[in-house]
């Protein structure tokens, strides 16, 4: 594993994503759902909304890093607000 050059922050990052995937899989099995159409005009399931959240968060954090000099934690806060919005309205 040494060649993969693991660090704690990246390990935590992947653990969070992996556990999100596991949680959403369990949710999908335990509580089946029907897709709904939100503000984007497309049909989404919980998994779709998770994908939109993660991808959007990556871009939000990059934009925060590129355009501001403030602490990166605020980028994460914005991403969480974005996540809540996606799960509520998309």
């Amino acid at each position: 594993m040494a060649w993969m050059a693991w660090t704690w922050p990246t390990a935590i990052f992947f653990l969070v994503i992996a556990s999100l995937l596991v949680i959403f899989t369990i949710l999908a099995i335990r509580f089946p759902e029907t897709p709904r159409t939100g503000v984007l005009g497309i049909e989404t399931t919980r998994g779709d909304r998770l994908f939109i959240t993660l991808l959007g968060s990556a871009f939000l954090n990059l934009a925060w890093l590129g355009w501001t000099d403030l602490a990166q934690w605020w980028g994460l806060v914005i991403a969480l607000v974005y996540a809540a919005a996606v799960f509520r309205w998309v």
């Binding site: 040494a2 060649w3 993969m4 050059a5 693991w6 660090t7 990246t10 990052f13 992947f14």
Partner: peptide, 21 residues
């Protein structure tokens, strides 16, 4: 997946070779 994870690990580190990060 494993190569991509490795790339993520590389992206937050600096190396001068010799597997030292």
């Amino acid at each position: 997946v494993i190569p991509l994870m490795t790339v993520v690990n590389y992206s937050v580190q600096d190396t001068f070779g010799n597997n030292q990060f």
